[in-house]
Write a protein that binds this DNA or RNA. Structure first.
Ligand code: SF4
Length: 477
RNA sequence: GGCGGC
DNA sequence: GCCGCCAACATA
């Protein structure tokens, strides 16, 4: 009777229509069609929050130093998803593709719905869109790995990706034509060569009559490119939709809640953490408590007496965030710049922008200092540029020198560890490690997510450990 | 640095 | 050549 009941439930009780059965025929999809949402608001919120948890797990696992897309990476992510009790997701994420049980369909529908809710909520700003896209792309590639050969074929077909897997006889022709470039032990797909440019530049790809022949391992990179470009277009449409839909009060409460969970954003620079900064001691403070990205800007400002556009911005917003008064910031920039520039030229070219950054001109917006994500994405490596995150932009020897100059008593191997983290592109972990070697007394409960957070932590540490010095100077005066 | 005005 | 304006989240 169980058997009968279950069988009926597939068709009747769960209410999967024929249309939905088609829509949810595969564990992986490109989310081209919006779902019909027939669930309660409470379920809506719960399920979407679960997907956000998945995003955070992916992000944090990648940040831990585990190389993306490796076996270890997949295992770590899935284990954590299980540990947080998100079993339904594990099933659909690791599915081989074409399962037909009720649970299969249920999982895919949940995947579908939660994806669209998140797509909507994370479409709001540029920053959120970027973050959402990278998590979704990683998730997509993770899931592709578990699809069976049949599942992959079906996926390609249902998304009109005309990459056909090649036949036996075609294969034997290719073997002779390709001069050893095609390996007979692997499975190959035929792809229009216009879609494989990025792959061609990285690997040797056999091209023939307008087609590239790609292994089944490499095909994911082609698909991912398609998926990404499709998604980024969709995100733009969503951001329009968002502004209209958000007027529903009930939805507003839920959607708002969702993206506050966005990890990079939980450090907010408020008026609460503004310090009295003595501008004449800024050099000492910088060496002691500035994060590398800001210290590096500060030193080129004072050594070269010049900063390029984004460097000026990155630094000025940071300074504003730690509590430097606008007059002091203006004074600092002017006194350095005018060592190599006529004072009136400085006034014409820069003073307005500084006031504007402090919210004193035009629209009078108090712009928020850049978070690590933003700084890292600034990519400061260019000629004469010092902005961006040093762990990303510095060449190996440059980084070596920086670390030697700024870490006074390194434990053996510590510097090596920092360099390796930087090399593996784990900039924020790297920075956290750097922070810990400079401030062994401070216990961190999270990684560095914001330059101003870095400053607060190291500055307050010095304050508390040097209370005796402060008292002394008070007493002696 | 970008956009815009004269 | 002069100049202004903008980089951003509405949420407690
Ligand atoms: S990780 Fe963040 S705080 Fe550290 S140097 Fe890079 S941008 Fe600055």
């Amino acid at each position: 009777m169980n058997f009968v009941a279950r069988k009926r439930r597939i068709l009747v009780d769960t209410g999967f229509t024929e249309y939905e059965m088609g829509l949810y025929s595969n564990d992986l999809q490109m989310y081209t069609t919006p779902p019909e949402i027939k669930i309660t608001l409470r379920e809506f919120e719960e399920q979407a929050l679960e997907r956000v948890k998945v995003y955070r797990i992916i992000e944090q696992t990648s940040a831990k130093g585990i190389t993306k897309l490796s076996e270890e990476w997949r295992k770590a992510i899935l284990d954590e998803i299980k540990a947080q009790g998100l079993k339904t997701f594990v099933k659909v994420f690791t599915g081989t593709g074409l399962g037909k049980t009720e649970a299969d369909y249920e999982g895919r529908r949940r995947d579908h719905i939660t994806h669209f809710i998140c797509r909507l909520t994370y479409s709001r700003t540029e920053e959120l869109r970027r973050w959402f896209m990278t998590q979704e792309m990683d998730l997509f590639r993770l899931r592709w790995h578990y699809l069976s050969s049949e599942g992959r074929q079906a996926f390609l077909k249902s998304n009109n990706l005309s990459y056909t897997s090649i036949s036996e006889e075609e294969m034997s022709r290719l073997l002779t034509l390709s001069n050893g470039l095609v390996d007979s032990t692997k499975e190959y797909y035929k792809v229009p060569f216009t879609e494989v440019f990025d792959l061609i530049s990285r690997r040797r790809i056999f091209l023939h009559k307008g087609f590239g022949y790609i292994t089944s391992q490499d095909i994911i990179s082609v698909i991912a490119t398609q998926f990404r470009s499709f998604m980024s277009k969709q995100m733009m449409l969503c951001s329009n939709l968002y502004s209209r839909i958000i007027e529903d009060e009930r939805l507003k409460a839920i959607l708002g809640n969702l993206n506050t969970v966005y990890t990079g954003k939980n450090y907010t620079v408020g008026s609460g953490n503004a310090h009295e900064i003595d501008i004449k001691q800024l050099g000492t403070i910088a060496r002691r408590a500035f994060p590398p990205c800001m210290l590096s800007l500060y030193s080129t400002l004072t050594n070269q007496n010049h900063l390029k556009h984004f460097g000026r911005l990155q630094l000025i917003l940071f300074l504003k965030g730690i509590g430097v008064k606008m007059e002091d910031a203006l004074y600092l920039y002017r006194s350095e710049f005018t060592k190599k520039m006529e004072p009136d030229k400085f006034d014409k070219e820069h003073s307005y922008n500084i006031r504007h950054s402090y919210g004193k001109e035009g629209k009078r917006t108090n712009y928020t200092p850049y978070a690590c994500m933003k700084v890292i994405n600034l990519n400061g490596g260019g000629a004469g540029e010092t902005h961006g995150c040093p762990f990303k932009t510095f060449e190996a020897n440059q980084l070596n020198k920086f670390l030697a100059d700024n870490i006074s008593n390194p434990e053996p191997g510590e510097v090596r560890e920092i360099i390796d983290l930087a090399k593996n592109k784990h900039y924020q972990i790297c920075c956290t490690k750097y922070f810990q070697t400079k401030n062994p007394g401070v216990k961190l409960n999270s990684i560095i997510e914001h330059p101003n957070q870095y400053f607060e932590l190291s500055y307050s540490d010095r304050n508390s450990t040097s209370k005796t010095e402060d008292k002394k100077s008070v007493a002696s005066s």
